[in-house]
């Protein structure tokens, strides 16, 4: 009976026990005793071949385990923009505009946040607001807005005077101006995103909304922090 030790030779498995080099000898049964004997040339070539196969197999095994040694991939999606996009859709869908503005396309304009525009376009471009089809428009800056057609909702991350200028440019129009700035409401935004307990929430300037003939929906009002 041949009890070939070559089967033990190449094991360098995940136990990290190290290669047990025993090549060159093979143990065989000699009556009741097992003893080592020199390998013939043919057997040595055979053993080398087996060792190579086993080493390759071992290497493949380690390589395969390598995929687990690698780190998982971080999802690089813009989480804040995803959340804001969902809120913006609800702001568009849950408020009421004067009747004459509830015809034709419903325009939602994004100033200066390509990531947010891309998410909105990807998720909501084919949707409708009431009976109006939703159009999502992107602007590089506030100046570009002046030449653009009426937008029902404008989102801008500008603050201070720039935000104020945007607000003034749409002063008498039923436009829901939304911002994400500490001084958003003071500078004319009707809804402003704020961070509360690590979450994105929003505050509302209902008074200003009424002046613009916009009726903020109860569902939107009930979740506002201010």
């Amino acid at each position: 009976m041949h009890f070939e030790r070559s089967e033990y030779v190449p094991i360098h498995d995940a136990t990290s026990r190290g290669t047990q080099t025993r090549s060159g000898t093979v143990l065989r049964d000699d009556g009741l005793r097992l003893r080592a004997m020199k390998l013939s040339k043919t057997m040595r070539i055979g053993a080398l071949f087996i060792a190579c196969i086993c080493c390759a197999s071992s290497a493949m095994n380690l390589h395969a385990q390598g995929q687990f040694a690698q780190s998982s991939a971080l999802d690089e999606s813009d989480t804040r923009s995803i959340t804001k996009a969902n809120f913006l859709f609800h702001f568009a869908a849950s408020n009421e505009w004067p009747a004459e503005f509830m015809e034709g396309p419903f325009r939602l304009a994004i100033i200066g946040n390509p990531s947010l525009h891309a998410i909105l376009a990807d998720k909501y471009a084919m949707k409708s607001i009431g009976s109006q089809s939703l159009e999502i428009i992107a602007f590089d800056d506030a100046e570009s807005l002046e030449k653009a057609p009426f937008s029902h909702v404008i989102y801008s991350e500008e603050s201070g005077e720039t935000l104020q200028r945007i607000s003034e440019s749409i002063q008498d129009q039923p436009v829901l101006l939304i911002s994400d700035a500490a001084d958003g409401l003071q500078n004319g935004a009707l809804i402003n995103f704020v961070a509360v307990n690590n979450r994105i929430r929003y505050e509302i300037n209902s008074e200003e909304a009424s002046k613009r003939d916009l009726l903020i929906g109860n569902r939107i009002l009930s979740w506002a922090v201010k």
Partner: peptide
């Protein structure tokens, strides 16, 4: 990463039919 990615996955599951409460 697994915890974070799961959060992102949940966030991405929000759609136009998601109510404000669910959001």
């Amino acid at each position: 990463i697994t915890l974070y990615n799961e959060g992102v996955r949940k966030l991405k599951s929000i759609g136009h039919e998601t109510s404000m409460f669910e959001l």
